[in-house]
Each structure stands twice: as structure tokens, then as C-alpha cells.
Design a protein around this nucleic acid. Structure first.
Lengths: 346, 346
DNA sequence: GGAAGTTTGGTAAACGTTTACCACAACGGA
DNA sequence: TCCGTTGTGGTAAACGTTTACCAAACTTCC
């Protein structure tokens, strides 16, 4: 049906070896004239090498697996893009695996990916458990973690400095004069949650503010969790005048809880988030947040993986990227500019 | 390194054919006792069949390509999940391809996918051009379109009834008493844009409202486009009292433009969107919108594709799914309930 | 006019499966 | 006794590449 290398060879009047050599621009020389004949035959037949056959021979699939808990979490698509862009530039395809935090599903995927001889794996998930990683280790497929670290594991990872990001956020609040600053954390089992909490505490401490345990409540990294956490915070007396949510989804949930009781943002309570998901700039008021370089993280993770695949491995590397505070409107930092904007109601 | 079928055969003291037969539960019988021996050997060695070798032999890759313009568009992840879940259930892996609406990139991916012998393709994109599809046709890989139709093409597709969805949205607005209803459309070249516009016009017509061309402005399916379109609408006199945006992103942009000039939603102007992206319920006020069954569309598309792959093809099928109007707060439909909620400010 | 490279090309053996054939044994019926 | 089945297993040829070897045919260089 579709032409094979053999068809090309026949048409060009050469052996398959020769065809293979021109296709792969092999070091083994082939006379320019023959090369042209082969090229013409390829053109005429519309030949394209079969990557699965090639993969069998070269023992590689030029495919990498991307494992995320859920691609519809707005945090992941940008990472995926970063990964895919550099993968694609190097001829790799990425197969997408949603695990929904389900260990069984994760195991299934791992098995699927192994049978396909993927050249590498990127975990953009917190659901990695040590068992699985050991399993992988046994099969020595290169792995890199992105965005979520797993402690005490000797694996490449590219992460953002969560401690510093949180510190930046809270420092910003303090700079604005806030003293009663609430914290809505992520699931406490996660490493990122712990780090962001640490940053919050440290910023408070450095400003000489004694942390009030009541101001610190645990969420679930989802909007609805932020909402109910905020409700609790609002019932305190006195309630916090500002709140730092450990991710944007919770921050947005918190904003909704605040507006619902008729309070104003940032007037009555200021809000900072973490992540800078696309919607952070779309909510009203626009959310001030600490941005993770998501695309870049993905791109770097893939670059690292590529190096591993090519065997350039030294020890395991942890890459820490700098977070950046994006000041928008939810903390009232730009009150002055805001005044200029109002247009007259028609 | 990793054990092959030959290792298993040796260990079990049988031929590779036998091993293959037990692994594939072939019709060719193998005695129970031998089967057990093979199974034990497999267990002991941790053998897993190599899918690329198998793919070479069977001329299939158990892989399907998913082509989207941009996975970070919040409309696509849910579709991708639907696709992936059913694909996975049938042992298929999906490779993710972002084209960024770039034809060259699309062509590149198509070529990549062909070389890998993907068993099928799902286009969740409007960027399909006829040339490409012909190319595909030539290589007869099954294709199904999802969410975005391409007119006059004999290809399977699963779509939502865009006309009806738009009709529903505008009818809702009319039912609420609105007469001056603005429309923020998508790029007019797209089939979906045209359909939604048609629905808007029809609903107006059925209510005996003469459409004012000035009330109809073209956006780009992005928030920022909805924002500037809304600004234009607001400058009209009299301005519309309600607006239907052809997708949620633009609706949210429009909401921001409205709030910015100090107008209230839905008090001064009501807003309806289209798609029901996850953030529709997170903005303030929560966006009333017509929902596309995104996950289901993905799942059905994959199901269709699976049938095609298995050769169950009759003529090309177009599946039209029903959109559903989700009434939330941006049109003031629930004013009464809203009154009960206010909690006292602390 | 050789010996010793260089080009340049072909042959055939992998890579890890699946599967069409063949073979042998056991069995049942005529 | 012979023959056709049926059950069970092995042999070896694909699938479409890549690549280690080999082998002519030309250089060069004495």
C-alpha cells in the first residue's frame, strides 16, 4: 500500500542500504548522482520512513510520556505546551496521560508507556509515589519531575522556589500595611504546600508579626476550597485584612466568598494568589499573584529529559526557577492609577 | 536487557509461538499445563510484550493523534479528557499536537503522525483546511472532527447544535424582557460563528424584534476581544440592555468592560456566554451560558473513531449534540433567590 | 606495475513480534 | 487396519528498517 524503502530501492535501481543511507544522511558516503536518483524515487513515490520499524531497530520510540493529574486543571496546559514545543522541535511526540490522582490508573499508564518503549517520562504531578519510581528505576527510563517535587528522591526536577514566592506575596501585603494576614494553604501533605506555608511564616516573622494559628486554614487547591476557607477566616474577629492563598484557584474562591458577604476587594480585604493561571487577570478585581514560569518550566523539563536520554547524565539535578510577583488590582497596590480609569456611565 | 519473548520461551521450555499464543489468548489452543508454565516464566522474568515490534507486525500503532489549536484554551481540556478516557479504555494512547493555528506546524504534525502509523486522527480545531484533509484521505487514516465542523467535507464529526444553543441563549434574554440585545460574534470565517449568529438572528426574528446591525460586533473568541467589542456596544445610544457573546471568554471580557465603566451586571446589562468553560461559574456574577457537552463530545468522537478504525464505516456521520442553557447569575434570572443570601458584613 | 588506501555500493543479519504452515499424537469410526 | 479429525506444538517467514561486513573499482604513491 504505502511505499516502503524497498519500493524506493527498486525504483531507483539501488539497494535498500543505499536508500537508508541517503534518508538518514549517514556518514557512509553515497555518490551525489546516486543520491539524486534516490531522492527522485522518494519524491515520486511519496515515500516516508516508517517510524515504528525504525523504532524497533533502533530500540527507541521517539516518544515521551507526560503524566499529569488532570489536564483540565488550568495550571497544567502551559506546562504541557512548553514540553511539547521543545519535544516537537526534536522530533519527539508526547503522549498525554491523565491520572486523576488515581494510583491504579497511574500504574496502568506506566505499564502502557513501558510497553511502547517511551524514551522518557515527565511527571507533572504530585501523585508520584515511591513505589512507582522504583519500578521506573528498575526499567531505567529517564524521568524528570516538573512543578511538584517529591522529597528525598534522587530524580531530576525543575521547580519554582515556592518558599520565596510565598515570601514575596506576603511581603507585598506587609508592605501595603497589612498586619492581620490570613493564609489559605494547600493539602498539607504536599511538599509545595509546606514550602508556601514556610514562606508565609517567614515573611511574617521577618516583619516582627506573630503568626496567629487561627489565621491559617487548610484548603484543597480548588476554588470551592478557597471559598469555604475564606468563610472561616471571615468569621474570626477581628478578621484578617488580607489573605494569601496558596494557589489562584483558591484565591478566586476566596474572592467570591468575600464579595458574597458584601465586602470589597481590596478595600476591606486584600487577596494574593499563587501560580498566575490565565484567569487571574480576568477576574474582577484582577488578581495579584506570584507567577510560576509554567511554560518555561515545561520547556526546561523537556530539555533536561533530552539530555538524560542522550546519556548526558551526571548526578540528579534540581533546577529552581524564580517566581515573580505580578501586581494587579486585588491588593490595592495601584490605587492611584486606578483612579484615572473610571469612565462616565452612559 | 529487558526480557523478550525468546527469553520467556527458553525459560518455559517452549517455542516463541507458544508464548505468543498465551500472551494473546489466541484461538490456537495451548494445553493448560503449558500455559501455566509460560505464565510462570512471564511472571518470573517480568516480561512485557514490546508494542513497537507488535505494531510493526500488525501494521498498527494503537495510537491516535489529537490535533488542537492550543490546549491552554480552556475549551479543549475537557474534550481531550473525554477522548483520552475512552481511548485509554481501549488500549490506545493519544499523542497531543498543538498547532497554534499554524498551518505549517499542522502539516509537520500530520507528517510526524503518519510516519508513526497512527491508527486515527481527531481534529478539535477549526484550522483544518481542505488540502490537508485530502492529503489524509490519500493516506486513508480515519479522521473525525470534533466541536468544529468544516463545511462541505465528507468526514465524521461530532458537534453541538450551535444554532440552537444561540437561539436558547437569546430566547432566555428575550424572556427576561430584553429587547435591545447585543451580539459579540466569533471570527466570521468560522462555521461555528456563523451558526451562532444565525441562532441570535432567528431568536430575535421569532420575537418580532428587528435586528439592529449596530448591535452586532465581531470579536475573536478571546477575552480581550470581548472586552473591546463591549466597549463599542456601550458607546451606542441607547446601548443594549443585554448581550450575547458567542463564547465564554468573550463574555467574561465583556463583563469586565461593563464593570469598568461602573455599570452593574445584570442590573444595567445582562450577559450570556457560550461553552460553559470551567471559569464561567467562578466569575462574579456567575455567568449564565449555554453549555457544550465537551467531555461527551470528546468521548463520542473517540468512540466514532474506534468504529472507523475497526472498519465499521458506512457513510460519513455527523452527530449533533444538544446544548444546554445553564442559568446562573449574569442575567438576573434568579433575582429573588439572590435576595435571601446577603450576610451581614462583620 | 603493484601495494595500500579510498570511495561507493550491495548482502544479509538483526530488532521482537505474529502467524501461516507443518508435524505428530491420540482418538473415533468404518 | 486405515483414515480423517482434533488438539497441541514447533519452524520460519514476514513486518520495514539499520548497519556490520564485504567487495569491487578507483586513486595514489613508490
Amino acid at each position: 500500500m504505502t511505499p516502503t524503502i524497498r519500493d524506493v530501492a527498486r525504483k531507483a535501481g539501488v539497494s535498500v542500504a543505499t536508500v537508508s543511507r541517503v534518508v538518514n544522511e549517514s556518514a557512509h558516503k553515497v555518490r551525489e548522482e546516486t543520491r539524486q536518483r534516490v531522492l527522485e524515487a522518494i519524491q515520486a513515490l511519496g515515500y516516508q520512513p516508517n517510524d515504528v520499524a525504525r523504532g524497533l531497530k533502533k530500540r527507541t520510540s521517539h516518544t515521551i510520556g507526560l503524566i499529569v493529574p488532570d489536564i483540565s486543571n488550568p495550571f497544567y496546559p502551559a506546562i504541557a505546551r512548553g514540553i511539547e514545543d521543545v519535544a516537537n522541535a526534536h522530533g519527539y511526540a508526547i503522549v498525554l496521560c491523565n491520572t486523576y490522582e488515581d494510583l491504579a490508573k497511574e500504574r496502568e499508564y506506566l505499564s502502557l508507556l513501558r510497553r511502547r518503549w517511551v524514551d522518557g517520562l515527565i511527571f507533572a504531578t504530585s501523585g508520584v509515589n515511591t513505589k512507582h519510581l522504583q519500578w521506573l528505576r528498575g526499567h531505567r527510563v529517564p524521568v524528570v519531575l516538573v512543578a511538584r517535587d517529591v522529597e528525598g528522591l534522587e530524580i531530576d526536577a525543575v521547580l519554582v522556589d515556592n518558599f520565596r514566592g510565598a515570601y514575596l506575596a506576603v511581603q507585598h501585603l506587609i508592605g501595603l500595611g497589612h498586619r492581620r494576614i490570613g493564609f489559605i494553604g494547600g493539602p498539607s501533605t504536599l511538599h509545595v504546600s509546606q514550602e508556601r506555608r514556610r514562606g508565609y511564616l517567614q515573611a511574617l516573622d521577618d516583619a516582627g508579626i506573630a503568626p496567629d494559628p487561627a489565621y491559617s486554614v487548610e484548603g484543597n487547591f480548588r476554588a470551592e476550597g478557597g471559598d469555604s476557607a475564606m468563610q472561616k477566616l471571615l468569621q474570626l474577629s477581628p478578621p484578617p485584612t488580607a489573605v494569601f492563598a496558596a494557589n489562584d484557584l483558591m484565591a478566586i474562591g476566596a474572592m467570591n466568598a468575600i464579595k458574597r458577604v458584601g465586602l470589597r476587594i481590596p478595600g476591606d480585604v486584600a487577596v494574593v494568589g499563587f501560580d498566575d493561571i490565565p484567569f487571574a487577570s480576568l477576574v474582577e478585581p484582577r488578581l495579584t499573584t506570584v507567577a510560576q514560569p509554567k511554560y518555561k518550566m515545561g520547556a526546561m523539563a523537556m530539555t533536561l529529559l533530552l539530555e538524560r536520554i542522550e546519556g548526558k547524565g551526571d548526578g540528579p539535578r534540581k533546577i529552581l526557577l524564580e517566581p515573580e510577583l505580578i501586581v494587579r488590582d486585588s491588593c490595592g497596590a495601584r490605587e492611584k492609577e486606578a483612579e484615572e480609569i473610571p469612565a462616565p456611565p452612559p
